[in-house]
Design a protein around this nucleic acid. Structure first.
Lengths: 132, 132
DNA sequence: TTACACAATGTTATAATATAACAAATTATT
DNA sequence: AATAATTTGTTATATTATAACATTGTGTAA
């Protein structure tokens, strides 16, 4: 059997939900929302999430244990991700800045380690929350 | 009462343990190790960890849910952190690179958002693991 | 076209991570 | 000493995530 190059039913259900959401979704919130579609157990959701992250369709916001759809067509795989996170309203935006990604992808320190992946999370107050 | 500017007993116990460790420690591993010192409940550990993170004595490796002592004297508070993580042996090193931190601290995108904090995690294979 | 290999799914149970709520003890200032 | 605030202790529980294994689906090749 070939390696799958399409989405399975569960993956599609989870992806559809995450893509419709304007903010990051938690795994158990996803579970709750897809129960009407037949996904009853956490593992069904986590397995779909794992695969979707692996192929770059969604990203995990590590500091929030939450998931967002990829808004960056360059993210074929999730190996170079950057987000801005509002510490007040928790709004998350994927940063798509070629200078930044170039800078980080080429970054080397004195450890002799070559990085094949990074994740960057910026925190602050979004425009709306700053003006409150 | 003044805001505390020293470590409490529990905080000191937890910090001592984390500082002695060469790799990141998980909260429940910390709990297990400090039980002989009298910290019996998860909350006692989590409260100490929260405070230690807040004042920059330790950092949380978000992708691993683990904690490391700060190796960077500049980290008065944990508002600008970068780590390299080996995906094979899980060795974590704090990156202390002034060009990088300057670049990221001054980073602005078109969202108009001003960031007061960031966390960056690089992934790859460390020297040892690369040569296996 | 059926047997096979393997991927994906379903299911139950449980592990691992983290916080809520509240009572008690400690400590600094009045 | 009275007080106010912080820290601690304690029980219970919420949240996040995975182990283990049985079952079903699907592409490939005999």
């Amino acid at each position: 059997m070939q390696k799958q190059n399409f989405l399975t039913k569960n993956q599609q259900i989870v992806l559809d939900l995450v893509e419709k959401s304007s903010q990051p979704l938690k795994a158990y919130s996803i579970l709750f929302n897809v129960q009407k579609k037949g996904l009853k157990a956490p593992l069904q959701v986590y397995r779909a999430l794992d695969k979707l992250v692996e192929i770059g369709k969604i990203h995990k916001i590590e500091s929030r244990n939450a998931f967002v759809a990829c808004k960056n067509s360059n993210c074929v795989v999730s190996n170079a991700t950057a987000f801005s996170i509002c510490e007040s309203c928790e709004k998350v935006t994927e940063i798509n800045n070629s200078k930044l990604s170039k800078y980080l992808s080429n970054f080397e320190d004195n450890s002799g380690m070559k990085y094949n992946k990074y994740n960057l999370e910026f925190f602050g107050l979004c425009k709306k929350c700053k003006n409150k």
